[in-house]
Amino acid sequence: MAPAVRLRAAVCLLGTYPALAGVDLSVEEGEVVLLRGPNGAGKTTLLRVLAGLLPVVDGECEVLGHDLRRDPRSVRSQVGLLGHATFLYDELTVAENARFWARAAKRTSADAHAALDRLGVEPRLHGVPVARLSAGQRRRVAIAVVAARQPRLWLLDEPHAGLDASGRDLLDGLVRDAAAAGGTVLFASHELDRSTALADRVVTLAGGVVRHGGAAPAARATEVVHAP
């Protein structure tokens, strides 16, 4: 079976700056991979490249069997990206946001409500405009929106940020269930203990290249990140 993600010497430029300077990475379907590295290592850029939002200007980049350089739009509909932004409309209610994005992804309103329930978004909040939510509640809704899409590839950038303890547990459960169902998860995090326990493998980025990739328990004990 082809890997869910296969990058070979992938280069992505932000202006003239090589945010990815030749990334080699292969991720199998059903794997949960933690991306770690210092600020500016290229983690967020890598996730955005895999979502088809930033172009690869050199190298090879295949995601879910599609060549990202030729056909990024085919990948996007199968990807769920949780970024630093929540992608929510302030004026719409929680339920309206969830339903809109679910229906945009050809899912149903029932999928949207199931995802909100899964993330512990209380029914009393469903009719509340997103602008009135706390940052943590907003984050939960954003994760629910991603979950409602039922993506094949989950790309999560600092997913635990802003969540309380129960929210973090719910998120970890969601990631494990997604992987058990055959989904592939790449997530970037600085919270090493929780994230390493969640991941099957840890990949370390620094200076826009992969410095290290290995099994999670070994990586936790031995990995050292060197700035370029």
Partner: peptide
């Protein structure tokens, strides 16, 4: 809040 990116991904 990144809605335009979300439209591209939607």
């Amino acid at each position: 809040d990144g809605a335009r990116q979300a439209l591209r991904l939607s």
